[in-house]
């Protein structure tokens, strides 16, 4: 008789796989630094984000201003740190909206099927008929520009992805024996949906949430770049880039650093999300 295999929890197994994935670790580290910066920006930033010195406009990086100063003489490094706050806030609110609405629609559609499912999926098709950022712009067209509407637009824009993924998982899960057992034990629909089906569909939801953080950041900063999102003087990376455009030739550093910040954070979420996918669901690995 061989020894019984040591029992490991699913979380421990996922962590073991994640730890061996170097790309995922790099992504996770970038995300951690980003979140840390967003929370502690006021403590880290050497200058106030909106304090300008018009005598020191568009200065290149120096010992005092690590990333230089912008068109109003404000410290770019400090503004980027504060920008992390704005971005994380937008990402969290937007993804939570999408997560809540998308999961609910996906659960209901996948579980009940029939007309409910049909109606929900056609509604998602309608949202998906507006390609990518164009959907967010169309929503802003209805709601008007601004931070709150930006979060709402970026949130609604991500609902179909969650709805489709959750629906797909539920469709295959609801035929499983444990659901039948729960039903035989007399559990109601709500209990089956939220206590049995949703927990078992968590892996793809977590992966999608992480990857969506990247997409939402790209979309939200794009909208702010267009002037439809966060308005100046708030330190938002896309808006900062937009303000830097007239100085592209004379002071290219003003446009360089906010873009670099967006790219790094998006890359962090993408790497971490890909790593989670490989660890949570090894079957999906190519």
């Amino acid at each position: 008789m061989s020894e019984p295999l040591p029992r490991t929890s699913q979380a421990a197994e996922v962590w073991r796989r994640l730890r061996r994935n170097r790309a995922a670790l790099v992504g996770g580290a970038v995300v951690a630094v980003f979140v840390f910066t967003a929370i502690f920006a006021p403590a880290i930033a050497p200058f106030a984000p909106d304090r300008g010195d018009l005598g020191r406009r568009l200065e290149p990086p120096s010992a005092e201003h690590w990333l230089g100063t912008d068109e109003l003489g404000r410290d770019i490094f400090s503004r980027i740190l504060y920008g992390a706050r704005v971005s994380l806030q937008i990402q969290l609110v937007a993804v939570l909206i999408a997560l809540a609405a998308g999961c609910l629609l996906g659960l209901v559609g996948g579980y009940y099927g029939g007309w409910a499912d049909h109606g929900i999926m056609r509604a998602m098709d309608i949202l998906l008929a507006f390609p990518g950022i164009f959907l967010a712009i169309s929503i802003i067209a209805v709601l008007g520009p601004g931070l709150l509407n930006l979060m709402l637009a970026a949130g609604i824009y991500s609902i179909p992805q969650f709805a489709r993924i959750v629906r797909g998982s539920i469709l295959s899960l609801k035929e499983k024996e444990f659901v039948e057992a729960a039903r035989a034990a007399g559990e109601g629909d709500a209990s089956i949906l939220f206590r049995h089906l949703l927990p078992n569909a968590m892996a793809p939801i977590i992966i999608q949430t992480t990857l969506r953080m990247a997409t939402v950041l790209l979309t939200a900063s794009g909208l702010s770049f267009l002037g439809l999102g966060v308005q100046p003087p708030h330190p938002e990376w896309g808006a900062m880039l937009s303000n830097a455009r007239p100085y592209l030739i004379t002071a290219p550093h003003v446009a360089t650093f906010p873009g670099l910040a967006i790219m790094l954070v998006v890359m962090g979420f993408n790497l971490f999300g890909d790593g989670l996918r490989d660890s949570l669901d090894p079957r999906l690995k190519d």
Binding site: G222, L241, A255, V266, N270
Partner: peptide, 10 residues
């Protein structure tokens, strides 16, 4: 990875 992470406008 860079391609999908880079903001188009940047």
């Amino acid at each position: 990875l860079l391609g999908i992470s880079m903001p188009i406008f940047w």
